[in-house]
Each structure stands twice: as C-alpha cells, then as structure tokens.
Design a protein around this nucleic acid. Structure first.
Lengths: 110, 110
DNA sequence: TCCTACATGTAGCCAAGCTATCTATCGTGG
DNA sequence: CCACGATAGATAGCTTGGCTACATGTAGGA
C-alpha cells in the first residue's frame, strides 16, 4: 500500500511501539495497526526480518515463552534501542520538515 | 545521509520543484538544495535516473537546448504530472500523519 | 472437519537511491 | 597555457530492505 514510502522508517515505528512495554512479534503487528489507525497492515515477511535486524543491531533483545500452547518471542528495547528511538524521532522531524518545505506549493518566481 | 529515508518520496519532490516552472536537470538539483534549506544534496546518479523514470511514466516531458555551449535537457510537468503531484501531496500527508501517530510517545498502557 | 486467528519464520524478487566513473564546455586564477 | 571548479548530462553496478509466497504448527469455533 504505502510500501515504498515506508523504506527506512519501519525500524523507528517498531522501536516506538516497543517503548512503552515489551511485545511479541504478532503483538507488535497489532500495536502498529492500532497506533496507525489501521493504515499500517504489515506483512509478516516485513515484520519478522525487521525484528531480527533490530536484534542483531542490539536495539532490542528477545526472550522465548509459551502461552496457551503457542511459542512467543517477546522483544524489549535495550538502552541502545531507547537512544536509537530518540535519534530516529529527531531524524524523522528533520526529514518531514524538509519534505514539507519542498512539497509546499508556491516557491513561485516572478 | 538520509538516503534510505528518501525512498519513494523523491519523485514527489522533483515534481514539486517543477511545478512553478520548467527546469533542466542541474537546475532541479539546485532548486531542491535551496527549497530544502540545504538538507538535500542529490547526487547526479540519483537525479538523472529519477528524471528519466518520470519521463517514461509520462509525468514530465523534456526538450533539448544549448545555452552557452552547454547542452541542456529541460523538463516540464505534463497534465498527468500535475495530477500525480496533487496525489503525492495527499499521500505524503497521510503517510506523515501515520508516522507521527506511531512515533508520538505515550500510547502508554496501565 | 475446516476455517480463522494466533504465532513464527525463510527464500527470493524487485525497485530505487547511491557510488564511481565518464564525457564535455566554460571561466578563472596561477 | 594549464589546472581546476562549476556547469551539464549520463550510465553500470551495488546495496538495501520491504514484499510476495510459502512453510509450519496450535487453538477454538462453526
């Protein structure tokens, strides 16, 4: 849907929903759906690789558990993850300001 | 710099600077630098392929000329290009609203 | 029994922005 | 005179990361 646009911003979104509490993958998916007002319907083929990427980068850490017979891998932010989130928020603000400025109509010449 | 973040948004930015007047490639580059407040320093390896893409998509059309011994290819928006720009603006607004909503801190639970 | 929701994961595709490189003109400074 | 920076255009090939499609398995309801 907004596939191409998401590039480079997904990590920030995932970190953001993990900020308030640890969540397992599927719950991250649902949290993103809710907090995006239904706009973000992330396929599992995007979500799970992204989580592993964040894991490898040391921004989240995971722990396995079994709830109701189903295996869950629960992720929580590391200290580095929280720092990264702060940084991502700043980068987003800069980026969106930049786009807004260019997209705004009427830098009209003579 | 903001390389990955730009993905999927560059076309909109280019269409935007072409809205007020036709420009040749190099001038598009400069216009983007100015209207982004210096934040966007697009390499030619990004710009020229993007312009050709927009051309193939029928969103701009080009015309060759020679000014001061230098060959210029000047691009201007087509009707479809203007429609696309309007559409891109809407899509950007939706996208940024979505990201803003997810990134905003404090969807805190109990 | 079958379908849906829950839950996790991978292989391989593809688009698009980037680096590096190339060509060529013009003006300026050493 | 020559080197260099700004102007002007272009392409080959790399890389990245989100997506499609697929695979696996449990639980619960129709």
């Amino acid at each position: 849907m907004m596939s191409e646009a998401l590039r480079g911003h997904l990590d920030a979104l995932i970190l953001a929903v993990l900020e308030t509490e640890p969540l397992h993958g599927y719950a991250v998916m649902e949290a993103l759906q809710v907090s995006s007002g239904g706009a973000l319907d992330l396929p599992t083929g995007s979500l799970y690789p992204a989580l592993r990427r964040l894991d490898r980068a040391g921004l989240v850490e995971s722990e396995w558990s079994t709830v109701g017979g189903r295996r869950r891998r629960t992720y929580q932010l590391t200290a580095a993850g929280r720092r990264a989130l702060t940084n991502e928020r700043t980068k987003w603000r800069d980026f969106s300001t930049m786009v807004e400025g260019v997209l705004r109509p009427g830098s009209a010449p003579a």
